[in-house]
């Protein structure tokens, strides 16, 4: 079901390509970087894209250092991810643009909200994604709900419940760990569970 925005494009070579850009040349350089880690080709790419990226970034970022960081980040991604470029799926300019736009997007998000979640490659993938493995959003209903209820318990009882159920310690281990008599552990656990039962409803046992 998941497809890549870049990849669907191409069979019908879409727009008129500008005469001003030597596309086959850019494509050859990018392929050489991907296939043979060719530094000379990378230098050519850098000389072509670097200054343009810098001037675009200067329009989006308040200071020079950040604009330079966009150049640095974008071009290192080009170096390290060139193998993801598929010349049958689109132009080199489109691919480098995607890399630059993604770097810019993540940096702006970081500056605005101090968020370092780097979402751009999920939103605009640089290549067709590989096989998917399955994973559930870790039991979001039960655990989270349980945790929020747990937080309402007195601290002493919380520690016992968390140790017993989340860290799977035995009551004896907990007694040692918390430096309490075994009887206290047992009664705290019993007390906590009866409160949880009220909070969560009887059928959650």
């Amino acid at each position: 079901m998941q497809t890549n925005l870049l990849s669907r494009v191409t069979s019908d070579k879409p727009i008129h390509m500008s005469e001003k850009i030597n596309h086959p040349q850019l494509c050859a350089w990018l392929s050489a970087v991907a296939n043979t880690r060719d530094k000379v080709s990378f230098t050519h790419l850098f000389k072509f894209f670097g200054p343009k990226i810098q001037s675009i970034a200067r329009g989006k970022f308040p200071n020079e250092a950040q604009a330079n960081e966009v150049v640095q980040e974008t071009m290192s991604n080009v170096w390290r991810k060139a193998h993801l470029f598929d010349k049958d799926k689109g132009a080199a300019t489109t691919w480098v643009y995607t890399v630059m736009r993604n770097v810019t997007f993540d940096m702006l998000r970081k500056i605005k909200g101090n968020k370092e979640d780097n979402l751009s490659d999920d939103i605009w993938p640089l290549a067709e994604s590989m096989v998917c493995e399955s994973e559930s959003f870790d039991d979001h209903l039960e655990n989270k709900q349980l945790l929020s209820v747990l937080e309402q318990l007195p601290e002493a009882q919380q520690a016992v419940v968390k140790g017993f159920y989340f860290m799977e310690m035995s009551q004896e281990q907990l007694a040692v760990h918390l430096n309490l008599p075994l009887g206290t552990i047992k009664s705290r656990l019993r007390l906590a569970l009866s409160k949880l039962k009220v909070q969560l409803g009887e059928d959650n046992d």
Binding site: L6, R8, S18, I21, K52, A91, T93, Y97, T98
Partner: peptide
């Protein structure tokens, strides 16, 4: 995809 090609093209012209 078309819009991306276009903006890429004009950005790097």
């Amino acid at each position: 995809a078309l819009l991306t090609d276009q903006i890429a093209e004009t950005s790097f012209e």
